[in-house]
Simulated scan of single mutants.
Amino acid sequence: MRTFVIGDIHGCYDELITLTKNINLKDEDLLISLGDLVDRGNKSKEVYEYFKNRPNSVVLMGNHERKHLNGTLSYAQEIVKIQFGERYAEFIDWLKNLNYYYETEDAIIIHAFFEHDKKLEEQKDEVLSGTTSGDRYLEKKYPENTYWNEFYKGEKPIIYGHHVVGDYPKILNNTYGIDTGSCHGNYLTAIELPSFQIHQVKAQKNYWTEEQKKWQIPVLKNKNWNAMTFTEIDKQLAKLAYIKEEEIVGFLNGLQEWKDQLQDSLRDMKEMIDHITRSIIEKNPDTFPLEVEKYLFKGFMYKSRTNRLEVKDLEKHIDTPQKVLDMQMELKNAQ
Rank of each mutant, 00 (worst) to 15 (best):
T3L: 03
T3P: 08
F4L: 10
F4S: 07
V5I: 13
V5E: 06
D8H: 03
H10E: 02
H10Y: 04
H10M: 07
G11F: 01
G11S: 00
C12W: 07
D14K: 14
E15Y: 07
E15T: 00
I17C: 03
T18W: 10
T18K: 15
L19T: 03
N22I: 04
E28V: 08
L30T: 11
I32Y: 09
I32N: 07
S33K: 09
G35I: 10
L37I: 07
D39I: 01
D39C: 12
R40L: 13
S44M: 05
K45P: 07
E46Y: 01
V47S: 12
Y48R: 02
E49K: 15
Y50I: 01
Y50M: 07
P55R: 13
N56W: 04
V58Q: 11
V59E: 09
L60I: 04
M61N: 11
M61P: 12
G62T: 05
N63K: 13
N63Q: 08
E65I: 06
R66I: 15
H68F: 11
H68E: 03
L69W: 05
N70Q: 13
S74T: 14
A76M: 12
Q77S: 10
Q77C: 11
V80A: 06
I82H: 02
Q83I: 05
Q83M: 09
Q83W: 07
E86S: 15
E86D: 15
R87E: 15
A89Q: 14
A89M: 04
A89L: 13
A89K: 15
A89H: 02
E90T: 10
F91M: 07
F91H: 09
F91A: 08
F91L: 00
I92G: 06
D93G: 01
W94V: 05
K96W: 10
L98T: 09
L98N: 02
L98P: 03
N99M: 07
Y100D: 08
Y101H: 15
Y102N: 05
E103T: 01
T104F: 04
T104I: 08
E105Q: 12
E105L: 04
E105T: 10
A107Q: 08
I109Y: 03
I109N: 04
I109W: 00
A112N: 02
F113N: 15
F113Q: 09
